[in-house]
Structures are given as structure tokens and as C-alpha cells.
């Protein structure tokens, strides 16, 4: 039989595809639970950086609000914020205390700011300023808030602040639109 004649190429390709499907189905079976678990673990690790005493968390898909639990009691909430930085989006995790009145802290998840300048937004000296700040006080100090901008990186600093502010208004709906930056 000539391997290039008739239906053999079609049959051969079909066979290869069937074997590939079987192999992938098997792999998927092995890794499926692991991947879900890994994703959940990644979220838990991310939340735990803001809430060290966290034991478990709930996630509300509609509002995007995480509720952090310890011993069955909520110890805070968290949600994602997005800032428009100097070179692309800045993803920020915002944690608030259980009374939703002040911040637990924030964490930068992804950023592409200028190394050595805007990228200083990931430094604790900048991020620690957000700890315990009232949700109405999140603003750059030049706009009457409590956050000092990084010297030479005003755009990146205000991107973070504006992103957090916007997310607070969206999730908690309470901060009055303040500041004129």
C-alpha cells in the first residue's frame, strides 16, 4: 500500500489526533484538581500578605469582594483595584478592616513602572503609608490626603492612589469624590 495514496493520510492524521486527545484527557484528569487548588492557594497567599492571621476566605463573584475569615469570624475584606500608571496598568490588592472604615493595607500585584523610579511603589516605605488610613483619607498629601508621593514619581504614586480611591468608591460606595488631581 502506498502511504501517500487514497484515504490513508486522512486516516493517519485522524489517528494521531485521537491519540493526542486521549493523552490530553488523561493529563487533564491528573492535573485538574491540582490546578484549581493551586489557583486557590495563590489567591490565599496573596490575601495572607495583608491579613497574616487569615485562616480561610470567601469570594463573592458578583462584587469581586473577598471576605477574610479567622476562626469563623470575618477579620476584613479585600478587593482588586487598577491604577493607570506611567507605562501600563497597575494591579493593586486593597485590604480593608472589618468595619470598612479604614484600610488594612495595600499590595501591588503587577506593575511595569520605570525601574528605579516609578517602580518604587512596591517599596514598603510607600505601601506602609496606607496601613490604617481612613477610607476617606486616601489621597496624596498635596491634595489633602495622608499619602506622600514618591519623589520624582508623582505619576506612579498618584496612579496607585487614584486606583485605590476608585476601587473604594466602587466596592464600598462611600468615599466622596475628593481631590482634584
Amino acid at each position: 500500500m502506498n502511504k501517500n495514496k487514497g484515504f490513508w493520510p486522512v486516516i493517519f492524521l485522524t489517528l494521531v489526533v485521537i491519540i493526542a486527545i486521549v493523552a490530553l484527557t488523561l493529563t487533564n484528569g491528573i492535573t485538574k484538581d491540582k490546578i484549581i487548588q493551586a489557583k486557590k492557594q495563590a489567591v490565599a497567599d496573596m490575601l495572607a500578605t495583608l491579613f497574616p492571621h487569615m485562616q480561610s476566605f470567601d469570594y463573592d463573584k458578583d462584587s469581586g469582594l473577598y471576605t477574610i475569615l479567622a476562626g469563623g469570624e470575618p477579620i476584613g475584606h479585600a478587593f482588586m483595584a487598577k491604577g493607570r500608571g506611567y507605562s501600563g496598568a497597575i494591579d493593586i490588592l486593597v485590604g480593608v478592616k472589618p468595619d470598612n472604615k479604614s484600610l488594612q493595607g495595600i499590595k501591588i500585584i503587577t506593575q511595569q513602572e520605570t525601574p528605579g523610579l516609578g517602580a518604587k511603589i512596591i517599596n514598603p516605605s510607600f505601601l506602609d503609608q496606607f496601613k490604617g488610613v481612613g477610607i476617606n483619607e486616601v489621597n496624596l498629601s498635596r491634595n489633602g490626603g495622608k499619602i506622600d508621593a514618591i519623589t520624582g514619581a508623582t505619576i506612579s504614586s498618584s496612579a496607585v492612589v487614584e486606583g485605590v480611591k476608585k476601587a473604594i468608591i466602587r466596592e464600598l460606595g462611600s468615599q466622596q469624590k475628593g481631590g482634584n488631581s
Binding site: T114, P115, G116, L117, G118, K120, G152
Partner: peptide, 9 residues
């Protein structure tokens, strides 16, 4: 400029 933005600002 791209490398040493901090030192050149």
C-alpha cells in the same frame, strides 16, 4: 534615561 531614571531625575 531608561536605565538610571532615578539617578537622572
Amino acid at each position: 534615561t531608561v536605565s538610571f531614571a532615578g539617578a537622572l531625575s
